[in-house]
Design a protein around this nucleic acid. Structure first.
Lengths: 108, 108
DNA sequence: GTAGCATGCAACCGATCAGTTGCACGACGA
DNA sequence: TCGTCGTGCAACTGATCGGTTGCATGCTAC
């Protein structure tokens, strides 16, 4: 295991799974926000969705809020920035398009 | 398994492993370009590096060129763009900073 | 209060993955 | 030509992961 001490690690790992990306997309678009709702839209069980949500939460890509007996999730954008910055730091060496991206991020 | 039919899948999976990111970073920076050289910089065996390179090559993040008895690798930037586009397509829903990113990508 | 619904916890299975060791093949140089 | 160095292939191990089922807990509404 080689660590470069970044949050990007967790983000890339979280985004590597298709089901998890589908979950994140649904949460981000607001079309579903509880584990049960999400499971209804996907061909996997509620527990599978719950595991994905737990992982996404550890990666700080979603945020959980208890509301009575249900738990609603919402997406949080922060960590994506760090992941993109990592790509940029690698990509700048060969791709000018990525360098332009870095500029767009650093001065919003 | 839920597929949204993108190359981003392979890119995120490739970037999820720390050792693989270290390999990609070394290749991109030009500090090493063969499996043996890379293994000398990392605390893993040559075969482990070779496997990572094979996976990175399948994700089209690196390109292999045979030169005599050795194989030199170089990074190719293309697939990172698609991965960033995916992040943007999700992120735009909650983060204006990501939307600015999308604009920067769409009209270079 | 009681039935129903959403969640949480735990155990389990099959597959994939990161990493290793060992050996065979092919190109280069003395 | 022969040793050496870089690579490729194969088998194996241990760990992690995605997914499932079963059951317990807790809020809510009637």
């Amino acid at each position: 295991m080689i660590s470069d001490g970044t949050q990007a690690q967790a983000v890339f790992a979280a985004l590597a799974d298709p089901t998890r990306r589908a979950v994140l997309r649904s949460v981000a678009s607001g079309e579903a926000s509880t584990a049960t709702e999400l499971a209804a839209h996907l061909p996997v069980s509620r527990q599978a969705v719950a595991k994905h949500l737990a992982l996404l939460e550890r990666a700080r890509l979603v945020d959980a809020q208890r509301a009575g007996r249900e738990v609603r999730f919402q997406a949080t954008p922060g960590p994506l920035g760090e992941a993109i910055e990592w790509m940029e730091s690698v990509g700048t060496q060969w791709d000018e398009r990525l360098a332009a991206l870095a500029r767009a991020i650093d001065k919003p």
